[in-house]
């Protein structure tokens, strides 16, 4: 994954987080995970997990917290 792609994935995940952070915590957490599950193609989720697996630097805490609820795509 290029630096450019990583930056984009981080930005998109954080944008979703910023919306979900205004909801009650549990609803926001579920909302974030569901949103990514519903709208992110597996390739994008794989890229997200690559970042999460390295500690998720740059990702907002809600994204990191929601990681367990985001569907991890099977390795292609």
């Amino acid at each position: 994954m290029s630096a450019n792609t990583a930056e984009k994935i981080i930005r998109m995940a954080n944008q979703i987080a910023m919306f979900m952070e205004t909801k009650p915590h549990e609803e926001g957490l579920a909302g974030l995970a569901n949103h990514i599950n519903d709208f992110w193609e597996p390739r994008m989720r794989t890229q997200l997990f690559a970042l999460l697996d390295q500690g998720g630097a740059g990702l907002r805490p809600l994204v990191i917290e929601a990681a367990g609820r985001i569907r991890r795509p099977q390795a292609a």
Binding site: S2, F39, W40, E41, P42, R43, M44
Partner: peptide, 18 residues
């Protein structure tokens, strides 16, 4: 059952080579 790529995602994936 998995969602597919949106237009900007298609272009990103193209640049990435997939």
């Amino acid at each position: 059952p998995e969602p597919g790529l949106r237009i900007p995602n298609m272009l990103d994936a193209a640049v990435e080579g997939t």
